Simulated scan of single mutants.
Amino acid sequence: MLTIWGRFDSSNVQALLWAVSELELPFRRFDIGERFGGTDTPGFRAMNPNGTIPVLRDGDGPALWETGAILRYLATRYAPESFWPSEPVARANVDRWAEWAKINVTLGFTGPVFWRVWRTPAKQRDPAAIAAAITALTKKLAIAETQLSAHRFLTGDTLTLADIQFGHILYRYYMIPIDRPDLPCLRAYFERLTERPAYQNHVMVSFDALRDQCPTP
Rank of each mutant, 00 (worst) to 15 (best):
T3E: 07
W100P: 11
R116Q: 15
A162I: 03
E87Q: 14
L71G: 01
Q213S: 11
S206E: 09
I169A: 03
G33S: 06
L183E: 00
L74T: 02
A198N: 03
T155G: 05
N104S: 12
A198F: 09
T158M: 09
P127T: 11
T41L: 07
P85R: 05
Y199F: 14
L64G: 10
R96C: 06
Y78K: 03
G6N: 00
L170V: 03
G108Q: 07
W115P: 01
V55F: 00
A63D: 04
H151K: 12
L25I: 10
W118A: 08
D179I: 09
P215E: 04
T155P: 04
W18Y: 09
K123W: 05
L159H: 09
P184N: 14
A122Y: 07
E99V: 09
T106C: 08
A133L: 09
P85Q: 01
F83E: 05
A142Q: 14
A150E: 15
R96W: 06
L137R: 13
A69F: 05
S82Q: 12
N93R: 15
I32D: 05
F153L: 09
V13F: 00
I53T: 08
S149H: 10
V13P: 02
R119T: 00
S206V: 10
P88T: 04
Q200K: 14
M175I: 11
K102S: 15
L210M: 14
K102I: 12
N201Y: 03
R211D: 12
A101N: 10
W118S: 05
C185F: 15
Q14I: 02
E195S: 13
S11I: 11
T146M: 12
F153I: 06
N48L: 11
W18H: 06
V13D: 02
R119W: 00
D40R: 14
E195Y: 07
F166K: 10
T120W: 09
L107F: 13
W18A: 07
L161T: 03
D179F: 01
R180M: 09
G61R: 03
L71V: 03
K123S: 14
V20M: 01
A150W: 05
D58P: 01
G37R: 04
T39E: 08
H168T: 13
P217V: 12
T76C: 10
V94W: 02
L25C: 04
F36P: 01
L25H: 00
W65I: 03
R172S: 12
P127D: 07
K102V: 14
R91D: 06
S149T: 11
R116D: 13
T67H: 00
W97I: 12
R96Q: 13
G108E: 04
F36E: 05
Q165S: 13
A122N: 05
G43V: 12
R7D: 04
A98W: 02
I169G: 03
K123Y: 01
N50L: 15
A98L: 13
C214T: 14
E99C: 06
D126W: 11
S82G: 15
L141T: 07
F109E: 00
F114Y: 15
P49V: 03
T67N: 01
Q14A: 07
N48Y: 10
L159D: 05
R77W: 00
F166P: 04
D95W: 00
R77V: 07
N104D: 08
T135G: 06
I176G: 08
D179G: 11
H168C: 10
E87T: 13
L107R: 14
H168Y: 12
L193R: 11
L71P: 01
Y78P: 00
V203L: 13
E34H: 13
I32Y: 03
A98S: 14
F109M: 04
E195I: 06
I103L: 15
